[in-house]
């Protein structure tokens, strides 16, 4: 897909205020947006008349700590149009102070677990998510380990287990 594609042009006209940048790299279009109206943006792309992006291929996040980006985190939506065989990438920037974004679970069911994974590892809270629990780390885990400021060797989680002891029969 090119950034001159009609679906991108229509998108720019409709959500001009929300767009931070439109990039094209090797035939891939990536649109960076603000996170406030992300649900409207995604719904518009999903229900586009000519090129409906009806499949959420992936949902993940990036931590741009100490890098020159509009906000610290970006939630990345990889969308795919089964009808047109086209792909588009939406990056919604989320700040560190108010680390939350609307859930896309109502638009695509598979967003449920993907958002749980992003919450688990990045600590980005998804509003109106039906079941926002950790999915990979243990339930009693504290912290979000894929954040760049999380220590690689952890905060002692890997050594906080009881040692096996033998109980003497009384």
């Amino acid at each position: 897909m090119k950034s001159s594609d009609p679906v991108v042009t229509r998108f720019k006209e409709r959500f001009g205020d929300e767009i931070l940048s439109v990039e094209e790299f090797r035939g891939q279009v990536a649109i960076s947006v603000k996170s406030a109206r992300v649900l409207d943006i995604l719904r518009a792309l999903r229900d586009d008349a000519e090129c409906p992006f009806d499949m959420l291929a992936d949902l993940t996040a990036v931590d741009y700590l100490r890098l020159d980006h509009p906000e610290r985190f970006a939630v990345v939506y990889q969308l795919y149009s089964l009808l047109r065989n086209e792909r588009i990438r939406i990056k919604a920037y989320v700040g560190e102070a108010r680390c939350e974004i609307e859930s896309a679970q109502a638009l695509w069911g598979d967003a449920n677990w993907l958002e749980r994974e992003v919450w688990d590892l990045y600590g980005i809270r998804f509003l109106n998510h039906p079941d926002l629990r950790r999915i990979l780390m243990p339930d009693n885990y504290t912290g979000h380990p894929l954040r760049k400021d999380y220590p690689l060797k952890g905060r002692g989680e890997r050594s906080n287990f009881p040692k096996y002891t033998v109980e003497e029969p009384s």
């Binding site: 220590p151 690689l152 989680e157 890997r158 050594s159 009881p162 040692k163």
Partner: peptide
Amino acid sequence: FDTYTLIQGVDQFIP
């Protein structure tokens, strides 16, 4: 795997 999620030797907890 010297990371936050991996036990650095099971002998720390079982004989």
